[in-house]
Design a protein around this nucleic acid. Structure first.
Length: 111
DNA sequence: TCTATGACTCCGG
DNA sequence: CCCGGAGCCATAG
């Protein structure tokens, strides 16, 4: 765990997700692309699954390209992910973020 | 080494 | 935009 180890890919995802500003969201593809693996968006989701051990990773700010909370079922509660987003000022209806493109944040913009 | 899986994305209809 | 199918790639068993 200390040192990068093979989890480098996961750590990269964690770093990017942690850089997501408050009240902002992004998509798996954006993160994957930022990591240089645009076609590995699924891996990002996989990394998120492992992020359960790290509370420093706001996985609730990561949704699919449609802005849908596809991973809400992976949280402890049923609507925990939605609650977290709404807590940050992000409106969520039917497991989908309202004005997703408005809240969308690209990791490359941070650069 | 190979197979199966997945919190995705793209493409065609 | 919605629906169904195919592609991709890394991790786990």
């Amino acid at each position: 765990m200390l040192t990068k180890d093979k989890t480098n890919f996961f750590e990269k995802v964690y770093v990017v997700v942690r850089q997501i500003p408050y009240g902002r969201v992004t998509s798996y593809g954006a993160i994957a692309k930022y990591l240089g693996a645009a076609r590995s968006a699924r891996m990002v989701g996989w990394a998120m699954n492992a992020s359960h051990s790290m509370d420093d990773v706001p996985a609730h700010r990561v949704v699919n390209r449609k802005g849908m909370l596809t991973g809400k079922f992976h949280f402890d509660g049923t609507n925990l992910m939605q609650q977290l987003l709404e807590n940050e000022g992000v409106k969520v209806v039917d497991n989908q973020i309202v004005d997703f493109e408005n809240y969308f944040w690209d990791p490359q913009e941070e650069c």
